[in-house]
């Protein structure tokens, strides 16, 4: 949306003093975030998670995968704030490092899912006809399969690398995104400005990018919010089942799985990753909800 700024600087000399420039994209986003408490809280939570994941080595003296067998299954203490697990590894350290895997894989998977879903959904709405029919029938078929089952099949067949998991998540989630985005785009496609672009003979991609996508930003953002938290949970479930991150990778789902047998002895070993997971999902939801308003709905209101 840099066009807003670009256009401000080229006023011919003859024109009377320019009207006050409308707040730019960043300023508008910032204002909405400030005015919306949930968005601010959500963004703060996500930011804390990101910072913690990045700075994990500086925050803790321990190593996430090497343990001290003599200090196994300890309760919370001054040395180990969240105690240790059965191999004597510091739980807090593993939780801090665990955000890296969770954030990295889920964000990649979500971005891929949303990008694919948005493009496919818009294209189906825009082109219509046999392309639409074919695409929707194929996606319906995928939709009818339970997500975790498809994930397990793919991971079993192709291995448990993070790229495989990202792809598998995309396969499972794209159909739902396509359905939602297509529905939103169908309302935009008959508008005259899309017709005008067609009459200019613009390519499908240009119409998609310039005319359709900007008008369904809010829908895409909300989709991102929902999918992101869902994907985090899905990946953790996969790890919990033993098909995600390989031990001894620090991962929240894997940690819950490893430590649940000892939950009566060291409850924090299971609870800490659960709390981390929960806060991240809630934070993602709040943040994306708020942002979708900043980019989407509110801009129209400003105009009215």
């Amino acid at each position: 949306m840099s066009f807003l700024k670009a256009s401000a600087g080229v006023a011919p000399a003859a024109v009377p003093p320019p009207a006050p420039v409308r707040p730019g994209f960043a300023a508008r986003t910032w204002r909405t975030v400030r005015s919306s408490r949930p968005a601010a809280i959500g963004l703060a939570i996500v930011a804390v998670h990101v910072v913690v994941a990045l700075l994990a080595p500086l925050l803790t003296p321990y190593h996430p995968t090497t343990g001290d067998a003599s200090h196994a299954l300890l309760g919370p203490s001054a040395d180990h704030w969240a105690g240790t697990d059965q191999y004597g590894r510091d739980v807090l350290t593993r939780v801090l490092y665990g955000g890296r895997y969770a954030l990295g894989v889920s964000v990649t998977a979500t971005v891929l899912t949303i990008a694919l879903g948005a493009v496919l959904g818009c294209a189906a709405a825009l082109r219509g006809g046999w392309l639409d029919d074919l695409l929707m029938r194929v996606l319906d078929a995928v939709l009818s399969l339970p997500a975790i089952l498809v994930l397990l099949v793919i991971v079993t067949a192709l291995g448990t690398g993070s790229s495989v998991i990202v792809l598998a998540i995309a396969v499972v989630c794209v159909p739902q995104v396509v359905r939602v985005v297509r529905g939103a785009a169908l309302a935009v496609v008959p508008q005259d400005y899309v017709t005008a672009a067609r009459a200019r003979g613009e390519s499908t991609w240009a119409i998609l990018r310039r005319e359709v996508l900007p008008n369904i930003t809010d829908v895409v953002c909300v989709e991102f919010a929902m999918r992101a938290s869902w994907v985090v949970l899905l990946i953790s479930s996969l790890s919990f089942l033993g098909f995600g991150a390989d031990p001894p990778t620090p991962d929240w789902g894997l940690m819950v799985s490893e430590n649940r047998t000892a939950i009566t002895v060291v409850p924090m070993a299971s609870l800490a990753p659960i709390i981390a997971l929960a806060t991240m999902v809630v934070g993602l939801n709040l943040a994306a909800d708020g942002l979708s308003k900043a980019w989407g709905v509110d801009r129209i209101r400003e105009g009215a």
Binding site: F3, S7, Q191, D192, Y193, A196, R210, E211, N215, I300
Partner: peptide, 25 residues
């Protein structure tokens, strides 16, 4: 050959500045 539409409400993309609508063609 250029077309001007009947309904001015729907002939402009609500998310793009009017300058952008004119710049595009």
């Amino acid at each position: 050959v250029q077309l001007v539409f009947q309904n001015a409400d729907t002939s402009l993309n609500p998310r793009r500045s009017v300058g952008d609508a004119v710049r595009r063609p």
